[in-house]
């Protein structure tokens, strides 16, 4: 009798442990990485964000906490300091697949000479691969701002036709890495052993009748194994 009880006890315990162990926990969907080898070493991978449709709308409750919001961006103004902004996007590969999400923060800081410069940090999170943290000095301040014709609303300059003045391409990154590129600060998981640089470029696709624009932000990374 005791052996029967013990055997059934162990069988019951084994059933639970096997069921729990084999339960299929979610696994992130992975798209093939689209990478090209650059002539002077490293690998190039471009990430794309379509504006305005890839902006992730923020919870309305953030409005009161952050002070002000525009579509998909929040602005925090501290008395006596330049404002800071945060933006959230869906992140795509060059074939248009949504592969992750991206967060960008921007503020104005004083450089070594005391002059104000705009700096941005990007986080690119690809659930199936890891995260890249990027940092750049901006060519100009592209963060959301108040302009007289916006009726008290913050706007993102590049999302209005007047910003482009006939051109269709704007390179936002101006440093701090060589060749006016931004710096890859850190990577996790698949990106952990990599370092390198990147450039953020805005490409205009068109201006709508209401003056707003649509286009894409291209984050072009060149990565190699960190020394």
């Amino acid at each position: 009798m005791a052996r029967l009880f013990l055997a059934s006890f162990l069988a019951g315990a084994a059933v639970v442990l096997v069921a729990v162990g084999l339960y299929p926990l979610p696994d992130p969907v992975r798209y093939a990485s689209i990478i090209s080898v650059v002539p002077n070493g490293g690998r190039q991978e471009d990430f794309v964000i379509h504006w305005p449709r890839d902006r992730i709308e923020l919870p309305a409750q953030l409005h009161s906490a952050a002070g002000s919001m525009t579509s998909g961006a929040a602005i925090l103004a501290d008395p006596g300091a330049a404002p800071a902004s945060g933006e959230l996007f869906k992140l795509r590969d060059v074939e248009g697949n949504v592969i992750g999400v991206a967060g960008k923060t921007t503020t104005l800081v004083s450089d070594n000479d005391g002059a104000a410069e705009s700096v941005s940090n990007w986080m690119l999170m690809i659930p199936s691969r890891g995260t890249l943290s990027l940092s750049q000095i901006n060519r100009a301040d592209l963060s959301p701002r108040l302009v007289p014709e916006s009726g008290g609303r913050y706007i993102i300059p590049a999302e209005f036709g007047r910003f482009w003045a006939g051109s269709t391409r704007y390179r936002a990154t101006a440093g701090p890495a060589a060749d006016e590129r931004g710096r890859v600060m850190q990577g996790t998981r698949e990106f952990a052993p990599l370092s390198g640089s990147y450039a953020e470029t805005w490409e205009l696709d068109g201006v709508r009748p209401d003056g707003t624009t649509e286009g894409k932000i291209v984050l072009s990374t060149v990565l190699g194994i960190a020394p």
């Binding site: 925090l76 330049a82 902004s85 921007t106 503020t107 940090n121 986080m123 890891g130 943290s133």
Partner: peptide
């Protein structure tokens, strides 16, 4: 896996 990007104005 979580990642924070925290910005202080100015």
């Amino acid at each position: 896996h979580s990642h924070w990007n925290i910005v202080w104005p100015g």
